[in-house]
Design a protein around this nucleic acid. Structure first.
Lengths: 265, 265
DNA sequence: GGTCATTTGTTCGTATGTATG
DNA sequence: CCATACATACGAACAAATGAC
């Protein structure tokens, strides 16, 4: 029923280029730098560049050994170096996986996607997946502090970082508070911009509720992860300067590619 | 290598009784309370008590109808009530699943497991799974603000709520700061108690880093969840009144059975 | 539940280059 | 020049865990 009424659109407002990947890694022997070290550096560079995304499986040790033209032990030495740094994690029988999360996402009163990503020298981007006008059910009404059946806008958005899908968010607004939010968001690609146009220049995140669950079928496609992959779900309420709920959102972060941080005082 | 050096013990310091489950649900007809409502309340009580764990599948509507001795439509009325409250979620062709998380876990400067659980009128419990003395590697040293190879204590603990495993935590302490922490924790079953005995009466949580991943084999057994189940991982640092790191911990929450909440100011 | 292929983990052995005294 | 110690690199085989069927 949800899908039927939902408007799906394909407008992309923030194009991102694929990171350049050095495909040929020529090892220089007898240079004073051990071969295993050169291999480790090569893999580390590929991970840092995003060519090897978080959570993806590396080629098997045997394959890497063949690619680099070395013995499997030499590859293992390199991998154990990366594992010690926390960059990869090996799992017997399954493979070796890129482990370390790249994006840290601070949860605070001022949580703005674009600012957070830009502050980490990364390229934020987004896509409006679709939108709908829907009456508030009991839960939504409670979250947004309105009566049930109050008309709401529902926006489904995808956010990418350096070309990698990072999160899917479903945003709810009270229609009559921000009547132009859909077009404003589609134009600017920014929640804070869209809210500012409606006159809400100052707002803050009041509460965040966090849990983990398995990815849904739809989100798996959007986030480009396998089914059963864990996602981090954050339910949050943004309020205006007076404390009135402005926006309720449910954000699903691609499992291990994002870490939330909370600073307590 | 880790397992070899790790001391596994079975000492249980906080015995928890299996939650009493009302197995026979006698419906009282003609009491003014609709039968579907009694069924809904009965299911709600089972969910709240933990007898029906989060994420598990309810019996099919036909089975429930038989158990309660009512028509399937009456069960459906009860389930739709629970679904509206967000406690269960039906999925066509799959079944009906317990949805809403029961335990909310606030993340703040003062995060104490026992207090949090007790405040929710639930029965906290715990078990020391094992402990070890281990030198700090680069990562641990950075987190705890000590030199690499500083001797640390590592404690592996399981926490249960109302008889349901809720979380597994690995705790790290600087050995020379709290030399008796292992026996103190084993005796009291409380981190705050153990730290108080070492003279640290005032400490607070400084940072928390949160992500989602698939449960490990060992944790799956402890938490009694299936493999591939998502877990919420929280890495946190507790500091004393002067800001010196006291404890570094990695906590794995059983997927959908726990929700973290963050209040921002 | 069992079998089987895949993949990492471990342990042997061998050989070479390099720094040290 | 030689003996020793150590890190590096290669080869083979087996153990153990995983996942798919």
């Amino acid at each position: 029923m949800f899908v039927d009424m939902f408007v799906y659109i394909g407008f992309c407002f923030n194009r991102v280029t694929a990171a350049g990947v050095p495909m040929s890694d020529l090892l220089k022997r007898g240079t004073g730098v051990a071969v295993w070290n050169q291999i480790a550096q090569s893999l580390e560079a590929r991970i840092a560049s995003g060519a090897l995304a978080r959570g993806t499986r590396l080629p098997t040790e045997a394959e890497l050994a063949e690619q680099f033209g070395v013995n499997r032990h030499t590859v293992r030495r390199a991998l154990s170096d990366l594992a010690a740094k926390g960059m990869v994690k090996a799992s017997r029988g399954r493979g070796t996986f890129v482990a370390r999360a790249a994006i840290t996402y601070p949860i605070s009163g001022r949580t703005r996607f674009s600012e957070i990503i830009s502050a980490q020298s990364r390229q934020p981007g987004g896509r409006l997946i679709g939108y709908a006008e829907t009456p508030a059910d009991a839960k939504l009404a409670a979250r947004l502090g309105v009566k049930p059946d109050t008309p709401l806008y529902e926006l489904e958005t995808l956010r990418v970082v350096d070309g990698q899908p990072a999160l899917v968010a479903t945003l709810y607004f009270v229609r009559d508070h921000v009547p132009e939010v859909i077009s404003d968001y589609a134009e600017t690609g920014s929640v804070s911009e869209a809210l500012a146009r409606a006159g809400f220049t100052d707002y803050r995140r009041k509460t965040s509720t966090i849990w983990a669950e398995a990815v849904s079928v739809q989100d798996a496609k959007l986030l480009k992860v396998a089914l059963h992959t864990p996602v981090l779900v954050v339910e949050s309420i943004n309020v205006d300067a007076g404390g009135t709920p402005l926006q309720y959102s449910v954000t699903r972060f691609a499992g291990e590619s994002v870490q939330l941080t909370v600073e307590s005082d």
